[in-house]
């Protein structure tokens, strides 16, 4: 084997290691007592403890944050699916002269700096008395989920072979039942990827949640970030445990999303 190839393989192996090791180390630290974390030489061998994870799962603030995150993200994604998928289908299958403008408008929502949305919304929600409530957060997140789902679902619907839909029309299906019975099931795999992506996006969202909640509607990322500001003795183990809890849900979608990526590029090839 040539030395160049060997170096290349070594660089890749190092990158692969760097991609996962920091997270694994955090997970390991979540199982350590503080004395095993605060060491100048990192310790690989230690007596594991469940105290950190137990503490995290026993705290009301964390459980409320978890509940808020699930409700806010779940509802926003549901709204995104209900409003985004049909619109994406219509843009993909019935293109008119505004189709390009609609696509650009949906993408341009991504250009808006989150602060520019969060500051006025905070004032608006304060004025109508919905500040620091889940409905306010859900409505705000829906802007994100609808636009992202639409943006990703348009190509997914376009890749459904037109012939299948034509055949269904010939068989007497109406436009709506073609959408329900043909387009949705055929594109289901790619659409699942788009929906999973939108979920990860709002689950990970921080700035808007930080500005729109003060106590009742805090989501998990906010609660986790606040744990670090408690007192002088940083509870490292507990912090690590909260990071692990926060990171698990998006990682559950790893399989779906990498499949989605593969299907996007397989379409381009053919």
């Amino acid at each position: 084997m040539k030395p160049g190839r060997l170096i290349g393989k070594a660089i890749l192996a190092l990158a692969g290691f760097l991609a996962v090791f920091p997270l694994l180390w955090t997970a390991l630290n979540a199982l350590k007592n503080n004395v095993d974390i605060i060491t100048r030489v990192p310790r690989l061998v230690f007596t594991p403890t469940w105290a950190n994870i137990g503490y995290i799962l026993g705290r009301d603030s964390v459980l409320t944050g978890l509940y808020n995150s699930i409700v806010a993200c779940g509802s926003a994604v549901l709204i995104g699916v209900v409003l985004g998928l049909p619109a994406a289908y219509a843009v993909a299958r019935y293109p008119n002269r505004w189709a390009g403008d609609i696509q650009f408008f949906v993408l341009s929502l991504r250009f808006l700096p989150p602060v520019a949305v969060a500051i006025p919304l905070m004032v608006i929600w304060l004025q109508i008395g919905l500040y620091d409530t889940l409905p306010a957060l859900i409505v705000t997140y829906s802007l994100l989920t609808i636009s992202v789902i639409m943006w990703l679902a348009i190509p997914a619907f376009q890749s459904v072979p037109k012939e299948i839909e034509e055949a269904a029309f010939v068989d007497g299906y109406g436009a709506y039942s073609v959408f329900w019975r043909i387009a949705l099931p055929v594109a289901a795999r790619s659409l699942a990827g788009a929906v999973a992506f939108s979920f990860v996006l709002v689950w990970n969202e921080f700035l808007i949640a930080l500005m729109l909640s003060s106590s009742n509607a805090k989501t998990l990322p906010i609660v986790a970030s606040e744990l670090s500001q408690q007192g002088m003795n940083v509870p490292w183990g507990i912090l690590n445990a909260s990071v692990v809890l926060l990171s698990l849900p998006p990682l559950l979608f790893l399989g779906v999303l990498s499949g989605f990526l593969n299907s996007v590029f397989r379409q381009k090839k053919t």
Partner: peptide, 12 residues
């Protein structure tokens, strides 16, 4: 492996 970091919440 390379997709894992981007899935993490930025806070994490």
């Amino acid at each position: 492996l390379f997709i894992i970091p981007v899935l993490l919440p930025r806070v994490s």
